[in-house]
Simulated scan of single mutants.
Amino acid sequence: MRVAFVGKGGSGKTTLSALFTRHLARSGAPVLAIDGDINQHLAEALGHDEDHLDAPPLGAHLPQIKEYLRGTNPRIASREAMIKTTPPGRGSRLLRLLGDDALHARHVRRVGDVPLMVTGEFDESDLGVACYHSKLGGVELYLNHLVDGPGEYVVVDMTAGADAFASGLFTRFDITFLVAEPTRKGVSVYRQYRDHAREFGIRIAVIGNKVTGEDDLLFLKEQVGDDLLTHLVHSPWVRAAEQGRAEGGLDTLEPHNRHALTILRETVDAHPRDWPALHRHAVEFHLRNARAWADEATGLDLAAQVDPEFVPGPTALT
């Protein structure tokens, strides 16, 4: 299952992404964390305490990723003809979660018990000539070509705010958890996300964060209604972890907050993957990009990259 964490900057979405990923890993479930935020702090939230993470960023290796994933697909003439939305077809190289392949071997590094991939930072060389969502193309291509199964999890810490809608990446998930503080600013992103998600049938659920009492909880219920799934209370454990002095792992996280993580996993597991819908969204956004800019940029009719005979899901592996 594929899970995205979104929210206003400072809402705690990176912290929640890390907590949930560690919760899954602690249970023994196969899980991969991906840092897709312009501020790359997920490794730190997972417990990495060194200056540098030796993980080649996806965003810096897009040509190689495209070359690998296009495989022998006859509809994709070259890696230059492949854009971030190009969907898989017959001949494409499909991936199993954390499989024994070149892409995972190059880009995955472990932080504690959690395998992690990163998109890479937005640096000075990008200023004025690129947008961060071009780096996220590696994540979109990865998810488009991933055939993950039941009980397997990909958790992506997304960009803050409504920037998550700047590409079709927001349709690549089985559920999106929106982290909201009990403030008017905290729920403003929720309203934007709710309206866009409904248009495409994307499942969202709100996680209240930094809740300090009944007034905070009542505010969230009034603002988001039935979309409020659960909430986390103010956490001395999280603060200690952020200061590098938490001990005992998740076993010592506050009981209410541990229970909230359990609710998140139960919610994820309650809805099986809809492979046709996932692929339909991929094709739709590919055609949108082709018409908007990519046909002109490549000089090709990129609609021809859509393989009408391709059947998404586990059967594609055979």
Rank of each mutant, 00 (worst) to 15 (best):
W293F: 15
E266R: 14
T230Q: 05
M1H: 13
P57E: 00
G7C: 08
L317D: 10
W275T: 08
S11K: 01
I263T: 15
E309N: 13
R70Q: 02
G47M: 07
E284F: 14
A246S: 10
T212I: 11
G149Y: 03
H259P: 02
L103C: 07
E296R: 12
A55E: 00
R280M: 09
V187D: 03
S125P: 11
G186D: 05
R203T: 14
D174R: 06
S235W: 04
I38S: 13
P182E: 01
V31Y: 04
D307W: 02
A33Q: 02
L146D: 00
L300G: 03
T298N: 07
A277S: 10
I263Y: 05
Q243Y: 08
V238A: 00
R22N: 00
S17A: 14
G151Q: 03
A105M: 11
V206M: 05
E309L: 14
Q192L: 12
K135V: 03
V6F: 07
D126E: 09
A205R: 09
A303E: 10
F170V: 10
L287V: 12
K13Y: 01
G9Y: 00
V129M: 08
T262M: 15
S125N: 15
D49A: 15
A197G: 09
G244N: 07
R22M: 13
I263Q: 07
V283I: 12
D227G: 07
D49Y: 11
A260N: 05
T21M: 07
E152Q: 06
I76C: 05
A297M: 13
A246Y: 07
D157W: 00
D123R: 14
D113G: 11
Y132R: 10
R280G: 15
T212A: 15
D51L: 15
E67Y: 10
A160F: 03
K210S: 09
L146A: 03
P115K: 04
L218Q: 14
S27C: 06
F122G: 03
